[in-house]
Write a protein that binds this DNA or RNA. Structure first.
Lengths: 353, 353
DNA sequence: CTGTTAGCGCATTCAG
DNA sequence: CTGAATGCGCTAACAG
């Protein structure tokens, strides 16, 4: 590899000078234009690049933000979620001269520990991760208090109110819009279909409030799914359809359904399909996430997370924490919300009754 | 941060001893059990973690494999592809004590340059990337010869025969299986639907060979798509459906369609849907990629890449190249293939005629 | 059985 | 205007 010394030798000067020129401190140190020229051309010709590790060791910073996730989110349902996240995050950090280190852990219970290790090893200056990873961690460990750990950490969608900055989605008005959309189409009754294991109760509450405001009947139907988390998403959908089929009597007479997520909505659509009922003719259907809704037939009306923006918000906070240590104290405990948005597409139509 | 020196002080010994104990060389250097004990407990209590950068600087290796992609593959059509890839790759490299540095570039034409920089900066010991990134690069630059660059690089699905190791999918027998599946269902004619811009001509050839062997008529239909690469996948599908609709006369009388990819297949399905034709009743439809097929209704028969395995193969080669420099020469020019597999699902049925 | 020393590549202080 | 010397944290010769 080519080092500062090599460039210095080629330019007939010292490493100090080379370092200064290449870091743009040449002028303030009043280095002659001729020397600067010699240095830059030598560096260019040799294809010099500073050793990342030497630099990071000296500076005590890695100029890297870590994004922690686990295998679930990469290979399972969360692929689209993850991709959207990175989309917003990556361009943001690069503009500040930072890089994004994506770490995913195959062992589903060691993700956070892995992240902390990365931080202790100085591989990353700050970490971004998803709330559920922390929640999973906390189920078997003592909480990580920011003031004792000193770890610059940003959480996305954390249910548990940890003393870290948390960026989360607010879906109240999006759900209100969705309910309004159905009401405008003449629907007098809307079913909210969710898994028994679901934790995001706020969605349900918002749904009920919105229905009350519009004077439409709010029906809650929960379904239990055995053998979930299949590798083949189709299997999952088929499973959901099967479970939904068993409680079909609870669903049959209300032709508008809002589902906990797109995946569940597809399960409903399949179950309906198998019974000869079609969307949007017999049922109006609204998903949640916009991860599978775009490729559904008909294209599914859904509520979108605004993932890119969430990524950017989290990134902004992480960068600030990485840059100035004081910012860590300032940001911890802060809450940022991004507005979800209802996207009407082709799965909703006038009430058939 | 806590350094080797801190641990040494706490254990009442020197940094050398600490280093040896913590790296497991304690026994071979005959360090007393008592000292070893003291060191390990001290390290434990202080929460010591070696500085990644110091270590990498000393060793001249980063123990990191880089996976390069660009924004397209993260946020666009390739999310699933990417996720499947990582799924196989990540677990593999971690088992060898390596980490995965995922780099994606927002500037679509600088991805490879960015990767080379990462390598020169010693951030990664080897790189894995996708053929199309290299091809894009080569369109405006001189080729990267491995022997002059010395860069340990593994390519995935490269059309251009660069002198690097290339891992690619072989879809010959999968396509043959798909054609056989349709033939067994009584289809006498099959349309292969592909975009005019498509480059993967081998698929088309395999299709034609398989049809000839089965004595079914092979029809090739190409479609041109304006305004592609939309952000909203639904828009893309709608665009495709529109374009397909305009050449519908070429498609109407042959009730079996194999599409260039799942996305195209969905476009066809939508176009058919708009004309009152349904899958699999009026048309049997087979996709390619298994990226969108699992969540389609009906679940789409498709050809799957075997992405996890491709990731693992590429990872294995990259690790060998990273570990021993000789391996670079051995591996360059090598070709590895992974067999694609036809997955029958619900979008194919008996010929209606 | 253990410690001293040196050097990885860089940026920076201090001295010309 | 420039360079020599120092140290970031770690490991590996080389001494004891």
């Amino acid at each position: 590899m080519v080092t500062l010394g090599d460039v210095a030798a080629a330019a007939g000067t010292s490493t100090t000078t080379v370092s200064r020129v290449l870091n743009g401190c040449g002028d303030s140190h009043r280095i002659s234009a001729r020397t600067q020229q010699a240095v830059t051309t030598a560096a260019e010709e040799l294809g010099y690049r500073p050793s990342y590790h030497a630099r990071a060791l000296k500076a005590g910073r890695s100029n890297t933000i870590g994004l922690m996730c686990n295998a679930d989110i990469l290979s399972g349902h969360g692929q689209g979620y993850f991709g959207g996240m990175i989309d917003g995050l990556n361009s943001l950090v690069r503009k500040q001269g930072y890089n994004l280190l994506l770490t995913s852990d195959d062992d589903r219970h060691m993700t956070l520990e892995q992240g902390v290790i990365f931080w202790k090893e100085q591989r990353v200056d700050a970490l971004i991760t998803f709330g559920y990873i922390i929640e999973r961690y906390m189920a078997t460990n003592t909480p990580l208090a920011p003031d004792t750990v000193g770890l610059p950490l940003v959480l996305i969608e954390s249910q548990w109110p940890l003393e870290y900055p948390i960026v989360s989605m607010n879906c109240a008005s999006a759900i209100n819009d969705a309910v309004g959309h159905l009401a405008d189409l003449g629907h007098q009754c809307i079913t909210y279909l969710l898994p028994t294991s679901s934790q995001a109760d706020d969605r349900r509450s918002f749904f009920e409030i919105a229905c009350k405001a519009r004077k439409v009947e709010a029906r809650i139907v929960t379904v239990d799914f055995p053998n979930d988390r299949q590798h083949d998403r189709w299997e999952t959908i088929a499973n959901r359809a099967k479970a939904i089929d068993q409680i079909w009597s609870q669903l049959a007479d209300c032709p508008a359904v809002m589902a906990y997520n797109d995946h569940m909505a597809l399960g409903f659509q399949l179950a309906a399909h198998n019974r000869g009922c079609h969307v949007p003719h017999d049922f109006s259907l609204i998903g949640f996430d916009d991860l599978y809704a775009q490729t559904a037939l008909p294209p599914m009306s859904t509520i979108s997370h605004g993932l890119q923006e969430m990524g950017q918000r989290a990134g902004t906070i992480a960068l600030e924490m990485a840059t100035s240590p004081d910012a860590v104290k300032t940001w911890n405990n802060r809450r940022e919300t991004v507005e979800a948005v209802f996207i009407p597409r082709g799965s909703t139509g006038p009430c058939p009754h």
